[in-house]
Design a protein around this nucleic acid. Structure first.
Lengths: 182, 182
DNA sequence: ACGAGATCGTTAGCCCACGAACGATTTCGA
DNA sequence: TCGAAATCGTTCGTGGGCTAACGATCTCGT
């Protein structure tokens, strides 16, 4: 009965929180003429250098057609360009323009402010637990229907199942490796 | 340093998990010709009876303009209608049609399946903690900038700050009060 | 050597999210 | 009482999410 109530509100809670985060980040990034997803693209490219669109979509955990629109707008606004890949002419490498470097630090600071606000009042332990729980939920839903499933062990703070489907081991979120708060 | 990593991945993790949940739910609901948001609208109206759009938007934690589109499509598909409110001619009450009742139980079951999958391997305690952490993050971001803020006490499983801005005390997620699994 | 099949990015069509601005009402204070 | 201000739903423009399907290209087995 009680248990039911938790399960129930989980979906609602995750989605509402996600929306709140996107809103907060979009608001903080707006002065830079950039959105949440565009910030994420910049972050990954700053972190890893030029990437083909498919790989970037994997890292962002969205579908390639979704990325097309984001990249279109960013190319229009001069943040990056699609350059041909010599080894494989089907691919297009996403490459940041010179416009990015001089403003990236300020953009990263804006994102950091949101992260700090979001995590206010959390201990390291709390934060770790929250993160672990989320990843586990995501794993539960992402993994193809287990049909007659592979018996998942109960959690105890960490997610026992490390993230099967992803071909890359994701460093989780781009390019905020230092913390010179503004 | 480590702490930094947790804060960092939190945003990424919450948004990815939210997307995964929406995807899973949309997939499960598709056979019924309904989406995640439309399911949520049905749930609230089943639970509370006819509501004006503003109040429904509050409960769903989205903006009124967003709700307009959702309601448009649902009215088009015959799930509900906008009926005039006698007390206040600005308002329109959302009222479910007869079409809903005979299929609601099956729709609710579909949603329950997703919830079960999402919560697989979690103890009541884990689930409670996860939920509490999320609500706290949302509170941190939703509450208007605290300027010189109101000192939040650290969490310890529960969210100490109960959810200030909302005018209604939300029952969290609609209308899945019983559990006759299919 | 060449054709079947996989892979890459794109298009098309749908749904959801926001802020700003706007008519239609209701409320409320001078 | 009557006009300023708040409230309700809507429209408009922009950005983000998905699936299905399609040309271009690469791979690989025969």
């Amino acid at each position: 009965m009680l248990r039911y109530d938790f399960e129930q509100s989980l979906l609602y809670s995750v989605c509402s929180t996600s929306l709140a985060m996107e809103r907060a980040l979009n608001e903080e990034l707006a002065p830079h003429g950039i959105t949440y997803r565009q910030w994420q693209v910049l972050g990954w490219l700053v972190l890893e250098g030029p990437l083909p669109q498919g790989e970037l979509a994997d890292r962002m955990r969205i579908e390639p057609p979704t990325l097309v629109g984001i990249v279109d707008r960013m190319e229009r606004d001069g943040w990056l360009e699609r350059s041909p890949c010599p080894e494989d002419r089907r691919r297009k490498l996403l490459r940041l323009t010179d416009r990015v470097e001089p403003v990236w630090e300020r953009i990263a600071s804006a994102a950091r402010r949101v992260r700090s606000r979001a995590a206010e009042g959390f201990s390291d332990e709390d934060l770790h637990r929250l993160f672990a729980g989320l990843e586990r939920v995501r794993g539960n839903l992402t993994r193809p229907q287990p049909s007659t499933a592979a018996e998942n062990r109960p959690v105890e703070g960490l997610p026992p199942v490390p993230d099967a489907p992803s071909p890359v081991t994701p460093p989780h979120t781009p390019a905020l490796a230092e913390d010179p708060r503004p």
